[in-house]
Design a protein around this nucleic acid. Structure first.
Length: 744
DNA sequence: CTCCCCACTCTTTTT
DNA sequence: GAGTGGGGAG
């Protein structure tokens, strides 16, 4: 029982309360992973539950891996038999076994967002849907959110009746779903939806899992969406030994369907649920924690709670306002260099967090210039790179020949003289004959109206056929070698883009070594490596999964990716209204949107253990034009006495060092923001980069609010403020450069 | 069929 | 600012 002695009282209660539903409200840094792992250990060692009867679900592979390692360390042998995995990989594991029960093939492909978009684009083209009015990303996100609420194409259609826009989406949704079936593919949402469908339609399958899992735990419960809720409910229905852990203040994924009600209403869904709160924070200093509390206090929709800590006060929170994003980068790198050289810190003590991935570039440049080693999490992830997706597409086709999206991606990559017309001919032919695209490729002789491409297609078909033999024999190493050899992919990179060729072939090298590692690990575990399983591993990685813990580097990532992590010293960069909170959330007029941003800020602050720096830039180049944003409202929500800020006096460090001259700067800026009437003919240049092609009285179109009439245009410092009356949404004051208004 | 250039979008966060 | 798609020319 010794290992439980170090737990505090509520933690201990949570560990010991093993039977029946349990809601664990665990504030930031309150040791929830500790509770979960001890709980698993307790179940196995004290309650003699067999390890494989315990299921623990996390959101990322990284969290799953970490949990498994900690369980292993706690109990030694046996830990590896606990089912610890993410929602998505759990579902894939289930579907790989049983999806044939609901008319899919078990070799299904998994479509990422790019693949799904391509499919949507094709459908839109066929249905003559004008991409000006319907963006594929918009349609896709509507479909995704429908799926997250378990609304199928039929139900969607019913809801759409009378709403023109939704009716169009409904048609696409229906076709999209049919195409997925035809391609034997599932998108990310389907992985969850189809599992629910499987359980609901095949009670025997569900029963199997009921018998398998008697204890279920779900981490980050505040981020679950409708399907995930349903899935958990189905799985836990028999034994009701369900423990969910979460923090409503850290719910930051509403935009992708997370439903905060899942956690807020847990007690009404599970009537006899026990609720335990973990409110002691072990991570941060008093000042940091207090700042976080004060910020999050401004949210209305939340469960009341207040974190406290026994840790020392620590330093105040440093807030620095600088003039530009490059000064911001310099301030951050200088601070890091100083900390390393003079205070004995290590690089891995530092994390730089930001709102959008676009901010990372300048920060990276700064770090490179100062010779600071860093690791970037996110951005264009490894598996989204063109060259990787190409090779993967080959493997996908070899694994699942009905995958049309993958087949079309590679039929002419590297270029082998098969153009659009040929592809279209094949497409027409197979859509009449009902074959899959690759069947058409194999049957090229019988397709009419193909002249030049015919020979090339036949050669391609032959090559794929021969590669498929290797794939089917499970000779994966040979397959990869032959694939690269015969397609000549690496050489083609040089011809395409000599500058990037080396980096790209390095990436392919990395993919190859990932395959080899996979083969070795699988064989070491006494199992047979399959293409199918490798593709699955590859499809379900998240950016954060790629983070290695053990190297001594500064970490850069978005605030979203940082959830669940902690660092001694944290920088939150870009603390400006318009960036964080984002202008989207500020302009929507919905308090919920700001509240979500505030939770994100709360997550950011609570990542810090000892020191927290916030930086704001007076001017920032964003999406091609310069913006002058005020300091983020979230900074203002931190009480003065907790804050050590230079923003009040208006003098930045760089100013006092004489690097920056406020008088010159002011003059320069004044010159560029001369007041200007809303008349295009004016000789005075417009504020930097802002050109308005509309005037008061004109009709304009806004991406969100639709059509409205311009009432007033005012020069507001750096930019124009435009007042528009939207019949559907009322009067809105918009910043011209952000609003994306189009004259009609 | 391929290549090249232009124009256009998208920039919030991601399994 | 960057990357992508579309359109036109060779």
């Amino acid at each position: 029982m010794d290992k439980y002695a170090t737990l505090n009282e509520p933690q201990r209660q949570a560990v010991m309360h093993t039977d029946g539903p349990l809601l664990l409200l665990a504030g930031a840094g309150s040791g929830k992973t500790r509770v979960l792992t001890h709980r698993i250990a307790y179940l196995i060692e004290e309650k003699h539950v067999l390890p494989w009867k315990i299921m623990a679900i996390t959101f990322t592979n990284k969290a799953a891996k970490e949990m498994r390692e900690r369980v292993d360390r706690l109990i030694g042998e046996g830990g590896q038999d606990v089912w610890v995995s993410t929602f998505h990989s759990s579902c894939v594991r289930i579907l790989r076994r049983y999806i044939d029960e609901i008319d899919y093939d078990r070799n299904f492909s998994i479509y990422d967002t790019d693949d799904a978009k391509k499919l949507i684009r094709e459908i839109m083209k066929e249905y003559n849907i004008d991409p000006k009015y319907f963006k594929e990303s918009m349609i896709l996100s509507e479909i995704s959110s429908a799926k997250n609420q378990l609304i199928g194409p039929k139900a969607f259609q019913k809801q759409a009746e009378g709403d023109m826009r939704k009716e169009v989406i409904s048609r696409v949704y229906k076709e999209y779903q049919q195409r997925l079936v035809k391609n034997n593919a599932l998108d990310f949402d389907d992985l969850l939806c189809k599992t629910v469908e499987l359980f609901e339609q095949r009670p025997k399958v569900l029963e199997y899992y009921h018998n398998l899992f008697s204890y279920i735990m779900v981490d980050e419960y505040q981020d679950t969406n409708g399907v995930q809720f349903r899935l958990v409910k189905l799985l836990a229905d028999k034994h009701k030994n369900l423990c969910v852990v979460g923090d409503d203040d850290q719910s930051i994924y509403r935009f992708r369907g997370a439903d905060i009600r899942n956690i807020l209403d847990f007690e009404s869904v599970y009537k006899d649920a026990k609720v335990i709160r973990l409110e002691q924070n072990y991570r941060s200093t008093k000042n940091i924690l207090e700042a976080a509390n004060e910020v999050i206090r401004n949210n209305r929709k939340r469960k009341a709670k207040k974190l406290w800590t026994d840790n020392p006060d620590g330093e105040r929170i440093h807030h620095v306002q600088v003039n530009s994003e490059s000064e911001e980068a310099r301030f951050i790198t200088d601070t890091i260099v100083h900390g390393i050289e003079d205070e004995g810190h290590e690089y891995y003590h530092y994390a730089i967090l930001y709102r959008t991935n676009a901010q990372s570039r300048l920060l990276e440049e700064g770090l490179v210039r100062s010779g600071i080693p860093y690791r970037l999490v996110g951005g264009v992830s490894f598996y989204q790179r063109k060259e990787i997706k190409d090779i993967i597409a080959y493997l996908k086709v070899l694994n699942n020949s009905t995958d049309e999206i993958a087949a079309k991606r590679i039929i002419n990559v590297p270029k082998r003289g098969i153009g659009n017309t040929t592809v279209e001919r094949i497409q027409e032919y197979v859509s009449i004959s009902g074959q899959s695209f690759m069947e058409g490729v194999n049957d090229i002789e019988s397709i009419p109206n193909i002249s030049r491409g015919k020979k090339n297609v036949a050669e391609f078909a032959l090559m794929m056929h021969e590669l498929k033999i290797l794939a089917d024999q499970g000779k994966l190493k040979r397959l990869m070698e032959e694939l690269l050899e015969r397609t000549g992919y690496i050489e083609s990179l040089k011809a395409d883009d000599p500058l990037k060729a080396e980096e790209r072939s390095d990436n392919i090298g990395e993919l190859v070594s990932k395959l080899y590692t996979y083969i070795e690990e699988t064989e070491a575990a006494g199992e047979e490596p399959t293409l199918n399983a490798f593709l699955e591993d590859v499809a379900l990685v998240a950016d954060i999964d790629q983070m290695e813990d053990d190297d001594n580097k500064v970490i850069l990532m978005t605030l979203h990716s940082a959830k669940g992590l902690e660092f001694p010293i944290v920088f939150m960069a870009g603390m400006e209204d318009g960036l964080f909170p984002s202008y989207m959330s500020m302009n929507s007029g919905l308090e919920e949107d700001i509240e979500e941003e505030r939770r994100l800020c709360y997550v950011g602050i609570t990542r810090a253990q000892d020191k927290l720096y916030m930086t704001s830039a007076r001017s920032r180049m964003l999406y091609g034009n310069t913006n002058y944003n005020p300091v983020s409202r979230f900074v203002a929500e931190i009480p003065k006495e907790l804050l050590d800020s230079n923003a009040v006096s208006g003098q930045s460090d760089l100013e006092s060092q004489g690097i920056y001259n406020p008088i010159e700067e002011r003059a320069r800026r004044k010159a560029s923001f001369k007041e200007k009437p809303y008349n295009m003919e004016s000789k005075i240049p417009a504020p930097e980069g802002v050109v308005l092609d509309y005037d008061a009285g004109d009709l304009v179109k806004h991406p969100k609010y639709g059509i409205g009439q311009v009432k007033l245009i005012e020069a507001g410092g750096a930019d124009y403020q435009v007042t528009v009356n939207f019949p559907s949404h009322g009067k809105k004051k918009l910043i011209a450069s952000f609003a994306g208004l189009k004259k009609i």
